[in-house]
Design a binder for these strands. Structure first.
Length: 486
RNA sequence: GGUCCCAUCGUCUAGUGGUUAGGACACCGGCCUCUCACGUCGGGAACGCGGGUUCGACUCCCGCUGGGAUCACCA
């Protein structure tokens, strides 16, 4: 039997990284087994579902490179297009006496819950409408339709005796008393099926073999299995992944700051880094930390998934991003950095080959693309601002002659020969003439060229900056020294 | 509160009855050095508690404690 897994996000908000990790694991399991990965859109809640969220989900997965074999844009993979099927199945259950209409109003239900809570009983539905409709009438019951005056809900008649066993691929065996499962609503009074019902029917119709999802769904599982049975299907295998928590130990949510895939993309993270981070949160392969997509697929299995929740560690993600910053091909970085430069309204004073050289000097100093562009501003902009503190410390009158001399040396280098070696030779002559150590000259030059005291190696900076801009900045710094003196 | 899940350094984890309990992030220190980084070398840091089982438990069982999830006409 070929493995078929699915990822079924609902388009009611951004694609959350805790959530997308479940999708990733489902994806890896399918790919590892040469099976199919299906993307399904759970949009039964038409009030909250938006086109923007759908686009964000699709774009996020594409950016991450998590590709699906079946799913959008194929209309069949949207729950909102399957209402006829849900109605048919619900009617079937009604006819067979496996479901029944419930006439309790939302307000009544709410009151019942509060009452149960006061009396410290379990807050579930007590089943008061379970036998209200005689079996003979059940087959004649129609689905809810408010406009036709049928504003009741349809509940699933859950078995009250026995047990339901979930043999989870990750958590092991969990046994539930059926008496604990109340009769859940499968059709709302507005004629819309609920999640637990639609999901089961989809998983059955699309022949899912393995349900991979967060363990917050574990309590739902016995109910869903019972619906599978009632519908005449065999439940799939389950793999419940532990949750991803925020630093405070609570389920990761928006209030923990950046949590969406888009947020990390816009912060200058690489999809490789995000994927690598996510795959190691709850899964391991010995001591290995760095995984290519091919390796993830090759090694992934549930046996090496942990059972306990993990706390999202932004610093480790940052380190991974840094790792990819240092090791991705320069051509790729050139491509990736452009939108970030554009976003700052900057222009690029060179071609891709020049950009590569620039990035090469910066990549081991920047952990994200945003940082990279920040550091690159002295390369990218014609005008630089000199930090006052740096100027006060390094651009003193005494250094002016040496700066002038260096400007002359640099200016005299033939453009065909303009590289680190010739630049270093120019430095050596100035150092010799003024009897200075490199350290005494490098810092003032650094301030003159970059505006600050921190930068890549000074020869590299000059090589990338180019002769003319270097000379111009050197001369400007020289006069700044003189002005400060007078 | 009921039900279910979970428990190794601060964090992510390796470990599957006998190990000086390993790695990674973060942190601290040395080296390298034109600054900052990178790199490199080294350091501190963990088996929640109590009972069993066993010649021997981080590993198996039970209890406790702690943490989490879930109990919607949301998904």
């Amino acid at each position: 039997m070929t493995v078929r897994t699915r990822y079924a996000p609902s388009p009611t908000g951004a694609l959350h990284i805790g959530n997308v990790r479940s999708g990733l694991f489902a994806y890896l399991f399918a790919r590892h087994n040469g099976g199919a990965f299906i993307l399904r859109i759970d949009d039964t809640d038409r009030e909250r579902s938006t086109r923007e969220s759908l686009d964000e989900i699709l774009e996020s997965l594409t950016w991450l490179g998590v590709d699906w074999d079946e799913g959008p844009p194929d209309a069949r993979y949207f729950q909102s297009n399957r209402f006829d099927r849900y109605r048919e199945a619900a009617l079937q259950l009604l006819r067979e006496g496996k479901a029944y209409p419930c006439y309790c109003t939302a307000a009544e239900l709410d009151a019942m819950r509060k009452q149960a809570e006061r009396e410290r009983r379990k807050p579930g539905y007590d089943g008061r409408c379970r036998d209200r409709t005689p079996p003979a009438e059940l087959a004649k019951i129609d689905l809810p339709d408010k406009r036709a005056g049928r504003d009741y809900t349809i509940r699933f008649r859950s078995p009250r005796e026995g047990i339901t066993v979930v043999d989870d691929l990750i958590k092991g065996r969990a046994v539930f008393e059926n008496a604990e499962l109340d009769d859940l609503i499968i059709f709302r009074s507005d004629g819309v099926p609920t999640y637990n019902f639609a999901t089961v029917l989809d998983d059955a119709d699309f022949k899912m073999t393995h349900i991979v999802r967060g363990d917050d769904h574990l309590p739902n599982t016995p109910r869903q299995m019972q619906i599978f049975y009632a519908l005449g299907f065999e439940p799939p295998a389950y793999a419940h992944l532990p949750m991803v928590m925020g630093p405070d130990g609570q389920k990761l949510s928006k209030r923990h700051g950046a949590t969406s895939v888009f947020a990390y993309r816009d912060l200058g993270y690489f999809p490789e880094a995000l994927l690598n981070y996510l795959v190691r949160l709850g899964w391991s392969h010995g001591d290995q930390e760095i995984f290519s997509r091919a390796e993830m697929i090759e090694y992934f299995d549930f046996a090496n998934c942990g059972k306990s929740a993990g706390i999202f560690n932004a610093e480790k993600l940052l380190w991974l991003n840094f790792h990819y910053m240092k090791s991705l091909p320069l051509a790729r970085l050139v491509r990736d950095i452009k939108p970030f430069v554009a976003r700052r309204g900057g222009t690029i004073p060179g071609d891709d080959a020049w950009l590569e050289k620039m990035i090469a000097t910066l990549r081991e100093r920047a952990k994200t693309l945003v940082e990279l562009v920040d550091f690159a501003s002295f390369y990218l902009n014609d005008e630089i601002a000199i930090e006052p503190k740096a100027a006060a410390k390094f651009l003193k009158p005494e250094i002016a002659p040496a700066l002038a001399a260096l400007a002359g040396e640099i200016a005299s280098i033939d453009s065909a020969d303009f590289a680190e070696a010739s630049i270093q030779a120019g430095f050596a002559r100035v150092l010799d003439r003024f009897a200075m150590k490199l350290g005494q000259l490098a810092q003032p030059v650094r301030v003159a060229l970059t505006g600050g005291t921190v930068s890549p190696g000074i020869y590299e900076v000059i090589a990338v900056l180019g002769r003319d801009r270097t000379v111009r900045r050197l001369r400007a710094a020289e006069s700044a020294c003189t002005v400060a003196a007078s």
